[in-house]
Nucleic acid binder design. Sequence first.
DNA 1: TTGCTACTGATAATGCAATATCAATAACGC
DNA 2: GCGTTATTGATATTGCATTATCAGTAGCAA
Lengths: 132, 132
Amino acid sequence: MSGNTRDTKQKRAILSAFEEAHRPLTPVQVQAAVLRELPKVSLATVYRVIKTFVEQGSLVPVSFPGAADRYESKECAARHHHHFLCTSCDRAFDLPGCGLRVSSGLPDGFAISRHEVVLYGSCDSCKGATSI
Amino acid sequence: MSGNTRDTKQKRAILSAFEEAHRPLTPVQVQAAVLRELPKVSLATVYRVIKTFVEQGSLVPVSFPGAADRYESKECAARHHHHFLCTSCDRAFDLPGCGLRVSSGLPDGFAISRHEVVLYGSCDSCKGATSI
DNA sequence: TTGCTACTGATAATGCAATATCAATAACGC
DNA sequence: GCGTTATTGATATTGCATTATCAGTAGCAA
C-alpha cells in the first residue's frame, strides 16, 4: 500500500504553531505564525496539512458564528470547554470549564446532544483599545 | 429626496413568513415558505427584501457556527435569548431565557460584551428519527 | 387611466474559503 | 549518493452565499 507520509519542516512548523498557541487558529493565522521560520509556506500547504491532521485526529475543527473555521490541537479539545472571541484582534481563546446551566425552558420533545458557548469582548492585550 | 418605498406582495409575504415562523430563517427557507402563495419569488428578491428590513431594523441577523446566516423578526430578537439547532431538519428555534452562568475562570484583563449559546440536538418533529 | 419609477425575476457576477492542478523540490529507503 | 515519489509553492478552480445587472412588471400619485 502507499499510505506513506513524510516528515517535513512545514508539517512540524504547522503542528507546533497549534501546540504553542493553545487556542483555535484560522489557516491564515497559522500561515502568519509559521512565516517567521518558513517565509515561503503556501496557504495551500497550510490547508492541506490541517486537513491531514484533522483526519488523523491531531487537530479538531472549531467554528464560530459568521467567521472562518478554526482548528485547535486535540489536547485543547480533549476536555469540554468554550471560547472567547476578541472583537478587536479577532483572536479566539480557550476558556476553562463550562458555566452553562442546561436548561430550564427546553420545549417538550427536544433532545440536546451538545452545545456551544461563545463569549465576545476584548482580550487582555486589547483592553482599553477602541474596538471600532 | 427619493427615499420612497412601495408596498408589494413580495415584501408582505416575506415579512409575514418571519412573523409566523417565530424562529430564525435562512433566505432559502424564507423562499420555500413564501413559495406557497407566490410561486415565483426569486431568491434575489428574498435577499434584497431581507437586506432592506435589516437596515430598517424590522429583521435582525443571527449567525450559527458553520451555517448560512439567518434572520429573525425584531420582536423575537427584542429579549435576550438563545437558539436550538436541529441537526436533523436544520431548523433553528428560539429558546426562552438564558441559562448561562457567566463565568468563573475568565482570565484577568478579559472583558465580556456579549455571548452566544447554541444547543444542538433533535427537535420535536425529528425525535426518534435517525440523525445520520 | 396614465406615467413615472421602484420593484421583481432571471441570471450573471462577485467575494471568500477551500480544493485541485502541476511542475519543481525534498524525504527517505536503498 | 540515487532514485522514487510524497510534498510543496504558485496559481487556477470550485463551491457557496450574497450582490449586481437589466429588461420587464407593477405600485402609486396625479
